[in-house]
């Protein structure tokens, strides 16, 4: 048997767990050791990545979900950290009537990605020096992500993370979103304020601060728009969310 054929047989055994595949490798107790190692490593990796989801679902339900995911999605990346990238979508299909489940999973995943994301410098208020506010564009740190949510998964996640009793799951107001980013080396998240998501989106699209204020003024009036934009900018600077303004 060629090396390639042997390795494909081995893969088939690990993925399917069928005895005929084990027989192609010569059978014996050693094949079971590899089968066990394969599955244990993947379940452990998922449990490490989705720690709050394990607490919310309980180990039994989580391991059932993990086992079904492993059967459906054999790993392809060379790093175990990437395994589980679409686990959120997968659990959404398993718990279609409990939308907080997938959202807790998504927070777990996103916080993990932000934790090892690209390093960047965060501007502080003292370092802010803008020559022309008419054209200045707000650039956020690269780790910043905006995550729309339908449930109070964020409150549940925080309670689970700190060992408190989580609140019951409930739907939240339409248009609610979380901001996830890294302050220094620590991932953080909070709910976006009113208009915050819009201002971030407009800025990300390259609109200058004056243009952002003008768009806000369409709904808030000119004076309130400038106040709102200024307040948001001040908060972002204090929270380490701004990489540059200019």
């Amino acid at each position: 048997m060629s090396l390639l054929a042997l390795q494909r047989d081995f893969r088939d055994w690990l993925v399917t767990g069928e005895e005929s595949a084990a027989a192609a490798l010569g059978g014996g107790p050693g094949t079971a050791v590899y089968q066990n190692n394969y599955r244990v490593a993947l379940v452990s990796s998922l449990a490490e990545t989705f720690q709050r989801l394990v607490l919310w679902l309980g180990e039994e339900d989580f391991e059932m979900a993990a086992a079904r995911y492993i059967d459906a999605r054999p790993p392809s990346s060379w790093t175990l950290d990437a395994y589980g990238e679409d686990f959120t979508d997968f659990v959404a299909t398993l718990w279609p009537d409990d939308p907080e489940v997938a959202e807790i999973a998504l927070i777990d995943w996103t916080v993990g990605q932000v934790f090892v994301g690209m390093d960047s410098f965060a501007l502080c208020a003292e370092g802010l020096s803008v020559a022309d506010w008419e054209t200045a564009v707000i650039h956020t740190v690269p780790s910043l992500l905006v995550m729309p949510i339908r449930t109070n998964a964020d409150a549940i996640w925080q309670a689970l993370a700190t060992g408190e009793t989580p609140p019951p799951a409930e739907l939240v107001e339409r248009g609610t979103a979380l901001l996830v980013w890294r302050q220094g080396l620590e991932p953080v998240f909070r709910r976006a304020e009113a208009h915050e998501r819009d201002v971030l989106a407009w800025s990300a699209a390259g609109e200058g601060f004056a243009a952002v204020c003008a768009r806000l003024a369409d709904t808030l009036g000119e004076e309130a728009a400038v106040t709102t934009a200024g307040t948001l900018l001040g908060r972002w600077l204090a929270e380490g969310m701004i990489a540059a303004v200019g």
């Binding site: 494909r8 690990l14 394969y38 490593a41 993947l42 990796s45 054999p74 392809s76 060379w78 395994y83």
Partner: peptide
Amino acid sequence: CWTRIDGFNSHDLLPVPYTEEALDV
């Protein structure tokens, strides 16, 4: 060892047969 084939990654250190072909690879 080998861990990967055809885009599948086992994340386990799988044994290599000690053949001339495997040595070349």
